[in-house]
Amino acid sequence: MRTLAARRRHPAATALLLLMALLVTGAAYTALAPSRADATIAPTVEGAVGDVDRGQELFLANCATCHGLQAQGGSAGPSLIGVGAASVDFQVATGRMPLAQQAPQAPQKPVVFDDQDVADLAAYVASLAPGPAIPEPGEVEATDDVEAIAAGGELFRINCAMCHNVVGSGGALTQGKYAPPLDDVENRHIYEAMQTGPQSMPVFNDDNISPEEKQQIISYLDHVNTTPSPGGWSLGSIGPVTEGLFVWVGAMVLLLGCAVWLGAKSS
C-alpha cells in the first residue's frame, strides 16, 4: 500500500488508472450485457436448414459486388457483419435484396431466392458474427386472444402508427422514403423488421418491445387485416383525404347529376 501511495504521482499513474477503469467497465459490460442471438444454431427458413458453405457461394455470386467479398461493406452497401440471420431473411425473402438500383429506399420486388437459398445466406451471414436470429414459428404466431390484440393495438399506435398509419396502411417519409403498408407481410418478417430495423425503420429490440409484445403487435395486425370493415368500403383506410375525395367525385357528382336531371325535367 505504501509503495502504491509513494508512486501515486508517477507520470504513468493517470494512464494506468484510466486503463484499469476501462478494463473494469468492459468486464462488467461483458458480464452483465444481455446476450444476443446465438450464431451457433443454423438458421431455418420455413423448415429449410441453412448451410454456411453454400451460403458463402451464393453470397459471393449475388451480394459481394456491393457488400464486399468478406461482407465487410463498401461505398455501395453496408457491412453485414453482425446483422444476423433475421436481417438476411427479411431483406432477401421479401424481395428487397438483391437491390435493383440505388434508390431512396429498397423497393419490394419479386423474390429471387427460394427458402433454402435464404437459409443458406442467413447461415453464412450469421456465421460472421452474432446477430438477431430468425424467430421460431411459435414466436410469430398471431393469437386471437382479445386482450393480446387490444394490447398489440395500443403498442402499435404508440410505436408504429406515426409512420405505418394506425391500421398499417403505410405512410410517406422524407425524401422519397416510405413506410410500406403492412397488410400483406408475413408475421415472421414483421417480427424481423422490428428486431433489425431495416432501412429507415428504428430497431425495436427485446428490451424495447419484448418478444411477447412483438407477438401482440403481430396479432393486432393480423386482426385488422382479416376483419372486414364494419362500416362498408373502407376507401383504403387512409383517413379523411380519401373520404373528401369520395364526397366530391362520388357524392357531389351524384347529387349534381340528380339536380341536372330534375332541372331538365321542366324545360
Partner: peptide, 23 residues
C-alpha cells in the same frame, strides 16, 4: 355502403401517438 371516420381503428386519444395520414 361506404365507411367514414372508422373511429375504432384510431383508438382513444392519447397525446403521445400521431398516426401517419392524419388529416
Amino acid at each position: 355502403l361506404v365507411s367514414i371516420n372508422a373511429i375504432w381503428v384510431y383508438g382513444p386519444y392519447d397525446p403521445s401517438p400521431v398516426s401517419a395520414g392524419t388529416q
